[in-house]
Structures are given as C-alpha cells and as structure tokens.
C-alpha cells in the first residue's frame, strides 16, 4: 500500500509540473546550427527563465518531427520547396548563415596558397581531374608548385545540409555535375571516399596525402584546416571569412524569394564567398499548441535582436537586419491560432 501511495504522490507531482514544462520550447533538427541554438537557449533561459530544448538529430529528422508535430519547431539546413511547405502547413525562415570550405592536404600548401574555380572543383569531384598537376589546376595557380600526386576526394557519407550546399553549388557551376549527380543532402558520388560527419571528413583529409574534402566553415576555422580560396561569380578570388559569408547573405534577394527559399550558393558580389547557405527553422502556420509556438517565436525574435554577437563568436554569420524585419512581418501575417488570431505582433 505504501508503494501505491508513493506512486500516486509521484504521479501528482509529475502532473503538477506539466503546466510549467509547457513553457519550455522544444525543437529538433540540423546539427550545423546546434552550437548557436544551444548558446542562445542558455542565455535566453538566464534572461527570461524560459528554456529551449533542441535536439540535433539531423535535418532529415527535424523535417520528419515537425511534420508529425512532435516538436514545436523543426530545423533544416536545406530549405523546403514552397509547395512542400504549403502541403504540410509550414512556414520557414533563416536564422544564421554558414557554408562550406574546401580543405586540402598537400605538402607545402598552406591556407590561401591554392585557388580553384567552381568548374575545376566540380571536375575534381566528378573524378575527371585525377592528379594535382593537372593543367586546369596549374592554370589557376601559375605560381604554385603542384606535385604529380593522385587527388583523393573525400565527401560526407551521411546525409547532411553541408553536402546539400556543396552539391547545389557544383550543380550551379557545372552542367555535367547537374545532369549526372544533382544536389541533395546525400548524392551518388562519382568519385572518392566517404566519411561520417565534419570530423570524419576532416580526419580523412588530415590523414590522406593529396586529399581534398569539404567541411563547415566554422569547423574548418576552429580546427585551422588548410582552406582553398574560391573564385566567385564575379571572377574574384576570395578567402573563406565571416565577411565573405556576410557578403553572400547581403547580396541575396531575400525579399523576392518565395517562402525564403534562397540558397546562398554562387551569389553575385565581388567579395561573396560562393559556397554559403543559411539554416532554417520550420514551424506550423496553425500550431497545435499556440502557447508553445508563441514562446518559440519570442525566442527567435530575442535571438535576432540580441544573439548576433554570440553567433559571430561561434563563427556563424547573423542575418541582415532588413531580412529580420521581413521575417517578423511574415510571422505576424502567417502564423495564427485556431481562431485566426496572429501569435506574433512586432511589439512583443
């Protein structure tokens, strides 16, 4: 009987905590923005007392979870097409910008020593260019002394937003890549070896002489990997830096984009890094739990307002202000509760 009593008591305690827990926002999805979401959540909790619980299970998982309504918001590195959003009753908005950096392992080659253009990069990843002393690479790097060494292509073996940005870029700059491979979170790779996660690619590149791979910008920077400069759409050579990603984000036409379906690869601008991409939040237009959704929107409004510096510290690029204004306008007009009342007004 005592045991039963304890059980009942425990149940009561659990039940009484439910209303309090409902204020906690739950989200799931992409692994790439996890560090910044976690940091924002931590500061937000300190400031407001409301928590945000984010599970970095991958973009694919995030999309599945928000579609099955088990979380308040989903997160994806790949924007959903407008028709998919309408079908699932979702809207999306970008939070921060990041991107991919090609990294190499060549004796005597340091960051910035080597530059490539999109077409050459695509040919390397197609397996058409097999050796580092290929004339196409030599033409772009007249002063570099490149060895007669086999190129080992390293790509992601798991599905990833990083791969989506990478293959989307290669599809834009090389017709062969577009027709043979295409762009997705995972593709049928024509050449090379696969490794799991940014860290897997990084380790394989670091351990294999003559290797070229691609990792998340923040990952390349924090691990001081040997990065390759890219020649962008305007024909200028750029190094991967926060400014170059910012330039790509600023030069994109967010306003005109349908449902913020913008992929930041191959953007115009002399200083734009060509392999950039935003990460997105997905939320229902008529959430099952309007209170939780309101909290989520409040959280992201706070993050846009106060989170820029934290993002920069972690090597993410914050969204330009005019894009934020447009996003909040969209929230006010699109996201409503059951009675049709907007959950978010610009004042809160």
């Amino acid at each position: 009987m005592n045991f039963l009593k304890t059980l009942v008591a425990a149940g009561l305690v659990a039940a009484s905590t439910v209303p309090v827990r409902a204020l906690d926002i739950s989200g799931a999805g992409a692994t790439f923005p996890y560090p910044i979401y976690a940091k924002w959540a931590d500061s937000y909790k300190k400031e407001t007392g409301n928590g945000m619980n984010y599970q970095s299970i991958g973009s694919g998982g995030g999309i599945k979870q928000i579609q099955s309504k088990t979380v308040t918001f989903g997160a994806s590195d790949m924007p959903l097409k407008p028709e998919e959003l309408t079908k699932s009753g979702l809207v999306q908005f970008p939070t921060v910008v990041g991107g991919d950096v090609p990294v190499v392992n060549l004796d005597g080659v340091k960051s910035g020593d080597l530059k490539l253009d999109g077409d050459t990069l695509a040919k390397i990843f197609l397996g058409d260019i097999k050796s580092w002393d290929d004339p196409a690479i030599a033409k772009l790097n007249p002063s570099a002394k490149l060895p007669k060494q086999a190129i080992v292509v390293v790509h992601r073996s798991d599905g990833s937003g990083t791969t989506f940005i990478w293959t989307d870029y290669l599809s834009k700059v090389n017709a062969d890549w577009k027709s043979k491979v295409g762009a997705n979170t995972s593709v049928e790779w024509p050449a090379g070896i696969g490794a799991k996660g940014n860290e897997g690619v990084a380790n394989n590149v670091a351990n294999t002489k003559g290797a070229i791979g691609y990792v998340e910008y923040a990952y390349a920077k924090q691990n001081k990997m040997t990065a390759v400069n890219m020649i962008n759409k305007d024909g200028k050579s750029v190094a991967p830096s926060a400014e170059a990603f910012q330039a790509a984000a600023a030069n994109a036409d967010w306003e005109k984009a349908d449902h913020y379906y913008v992929i930041l690869t191959d953007q115009p601008g002399a200083t734009s890094w060509p392999i950039a991409g935003a990460t997105f939040i997905l939320i229902h237009t008529q959430p099952q739990d309007p209170a939780a959704a309101t909290e989520a929107l409040k959280f992201f409004a706070w993050a846009y307002k106060k989170g820029d510096k934290m993002a920069e510290e972690l090597d993410y690029v914050p969204m330009p202000d005019k894009v934020v204004t447009s996003i909040q306008k969209m929230w006010a007009s699109e996201i409503k509760d059951g009675t049709g009342k907007a959950l978010f007004t610009a004042s809160n």
Binding site: I57, G58, S59, G60, G61, I63, K64, S157, D158, G159, S160, T185, S186, E188, W189, G192, I193, G194, A195, K196
Partner: peptide
C-alpha cells in the same frame, strides 16, 4: 563508404551495415 563495385581491393566500397549506420539519420 562509396556505393560502387570496383575490381581493385584498394578502392573504397561499402557494406550493408555501414550504409545503414551512415545514412539512416538523414534519410529523407
């Protein structure tokens, strides 16, 4: 982790369990 059959034993390949482990989390 390359989805290819090559005659060379030194070339990359994949196995059933490796494919599942790699791709299940992000399979859309």
């Amino acid at each position: 982790n390359a989805h290819k059959i090559t005659t060379s034993l030194l070339a990359p390949g994949t196995t059933i369990s490796a494919t599942i482990a790699n791709e299940f989390t992000e399979a859309v």
